[in-house]
Design a protein around this nucleic acid. Structure first.
Length: 580
DNA sequence: GCCGTTTTCGGCCCGACTGTTTTCAGTCG
């Protein structure tokens, strides 16, 4: 079992304890232990042999060590199992609804026998929530909307989760001598924000027609397999423990390119491509591009051959959404979309001054290792008290510290001073302007916790970016993938005003954030809005992990020119709104 | 349940906001 899974079990136990009304400090210990399990570089599954090693981890004491050992041995935790029996497995999903915390779950369980999202929907429809404490019309409406949003995203997985699984599956497939190549396809390869299921293609001598029996058995032996859906000659389908459906397809080498093209999609792209093939006297399938008359094969082994035979440029999978890429590829006018190598600096990160894990120096060293020319330290401001946010005095001291570290680096890297301020309920910022004016970069971030009706929310953000000290708008939609829908805001009005003011808009690369969706990004480009790519790292190890965010930019056809931190340090600063 | 000690107990990130309240509980970050 990997660290992530163990962390998840601890986290779930903490959630259940909270519903059960356990001691809050004990609960916090479980959460800290879960975080430690996720963060540590120690491989827990093997470290459980050695209790002393577990105790070295901050946040793991004697009791947690034995719990980790129990998890490793039995796959679960007695406390968790007991509470799950008591409340039912559905309560954990109830917690995912916005505005729903442990107290409300507990109330619903006690007063209305609600223990799952299904039962909550029933109870709302039956009017059984009316009259319960703190359950007014607004609250019930909020829950109803939350249920709708939840149902819409059910069965989907975040890109990073799917990619982790894909990586493990590919590694497993390549262990079999008859498999030479294994590639994830489908929406994962297109870099969609979320993925419904996973297509993995495998090819090699063991995948040739009529000889697949041994390879099929090898696939079926994947350790992460939870239950088998179907097992045929060329395809094995199963669920993983998380419920992600995986289809592994075994293909002859000669058809690899055609299959990769076919299974990468999208549907619209493939339909258009097949139409073009027909017009040219070909037929395109997952097996090959062939002559319409006689069926002689034209191309099949690689995607490049197929696109070339159709007299068009090959294009990155992210662009295959039937949004004009076929015409552009035929005319040779596909833009050179941005890639990870274009990024020259990261401009949103946290240190131990607020809620990060590393010092300014450690972040700078990590940035240097990523090949960056610059970084910006942007810790939280005081309003986010739980993050140990900086007040005016500490913010000024922090700037001084950042400047010192920049000197220590002896010109190796530029370090911008900065801060991530909170936008208050009335659109004001939570730090004094005199202090903000001394920062290289002020990111004003939208947080959904103060969500208001759309008009008010929009007005609040518009007011915040009018402040001349604000140079970047952070988390413009406040969404968390699969957890919280974007906040209700007129994003077009916000992007338009930001473009006018020269305020850059952040696209956070963290796979649970991806602040702007495909449509927002296209809109931003259209409006001439400057985009800034950032990792929002709280740990030096996450610096440079921009690939998920980059893929969204590629999907929206953004080029290096559209993104400010593809420029050098001076170019980046110069591209921001001049300081007020 | 963890941790560090003024070392075997007693502390443990807390402030803003919303909705339901009429003084505050619950959620979020």
């Amino acid at each position: 079992m990997d660290n992530k899974t163990m962390a998840r079990l601890l986290e779930e136990t903490a959630d259940l304890m909270e519903i059960d009304g356990a001691d809050s400090f004990r609960i916090r210990s479980y959460r800290r232990a879960a975080e430690a399990a996720e963060q540590t570089t120690i491989e827990l599954a093997s470290a459980v042999q050695d209790t002393a090693r577990l105790l070295e981890i901050d946040g793991i004491g004697k009791s947690m060590a034995s719990k980790l050992q129990a998890i490793a041995a039995t796959g679960s935790l007695p406390q968790r199992d007991e509470l799950l029996t008591k409340y039912g497995a559905g309560v954990l999903s109830l917690l995912k609804l916005p505005g729903m915390g442990p107290k409300t779950v507990s109330l619903l369980w006690d007063a209305a026998q609600v223990a799952s999202i299904e039962q909550l929907a029933e109870a709302i429809d039956a009017g059984r929530l009316k009259g319960l404490p703190r359950m007014g019309a607004k609250q019930i409406e909020k829950l109803r909307k939350g249920i709708d949003d939840y149902r819409r995203s059910a069965g989907r997985f975040r890109l990073d989760v799917a990619e982790d699984e894909a990586r493990r599956i590919v590694a497993h497939l390549l262990k079999f001598p008859g498999i030479e190549k294994a590639t994830p396809a489908g929406s994962l390869r297109r870099g969609r924000e979320t993925v419904g299921d996973l297509d993995v293609l495998a090819t090699g001598p063991g995948c040739e027609p009529g000889q697949t029996a041994a390879a099929v058995e090898h696939v079926a032996g994947y350790p992460g397999l939870h239950d088998m859906i179907a097992k045929g000659e060329n395809k094995v389908s199963f669920h993983t423990g998380l419920g992600l459906q995986v289809d592994v397809r075994l293909l002859p080498s000669a058809s690899y390119g055609a299959a990769l093209q076919y299974f990468t999609g999208s549907k619209g792209h493939n339909v258009s491509l097949r139409q073009r093939a027909l017009k040219m006297g070909y037929t395109l399938s997952e097996w090959s591009l062939a002559m319409l008359e006689g069926g002689a094969m034209v191309a099949a082994a690689t995607e490049e051959e197929i696109y070339a035979a159709l007299k068009m440029e090959w294009m990155p999978p992210e662009m295959r959404e039937n949004l004009g890429e076929i015409d552009a590829a035929v005319q040779g006018t596909l833009p050179r979309v941005i890639s990870l190598e274009d990024i020259r600096g990261d401009v949103h990160m946290h240190t131990t001054a607020s809620d990060g894990n590393n010092s300014v120096r450690e972040m700078a060293d990590a940035a240097l290792k990523c090949g960056y020319k610059y970084l910006a330290i942007t810790d939280h401001s005081k309003n986010l008290a739980m993050t140990n946010g900086l007040d005016e005095k500490r913010a000024l001291e922090h700037i001084a510290r950042i400047r010192e570290v920049e000197k220590e680096m002896e010109g190796g890297i530029r370090i911008f001073t900065g801060i991530e301020v909170d936008i208050l309920g009335d659109g004001a910022l939570d730090l004094a302007d005199e202090v903000l004016a001394q920062m290289d970069i002020v990111i004003a971030s939208v947080h959904s916790r103060f969500e208001q009706p759309r008009e008010e929310m929009t007005a609040r953000v518009l007011r915040a970016i009018e402040n001349p000290n604000v140079r970047i708008l952070g988390h413009p939609t406040g969404r968390m993938l699969l957890r919280r829908e974007p906040i209700a805001i007129d994003i077009e009005a916000v992007l338009r005003r930001a473009a006018e003011l020269g305020v850059a808009v952040e696209h956070n690369a963290s796979p649970e954030r991806l602040d702007l969706n495909d449509r927002d990004l296209r809109l931003a480009k259209e409006l001439g809005c400057k985009i800034v790519m950032s990792s929002d790292s709280h740990d030096a190890r996450n610096l440079g992990r921009l690939d998920y965010g980059i893929r969204q930019l590629r999907r929206a056809w953004l080029t290096p020119e559209d993104v400010l931190n593809t420029r050098d340090a001076e170019g980046f600063l110069g591209g921001l709104r001049p300081r007020g």
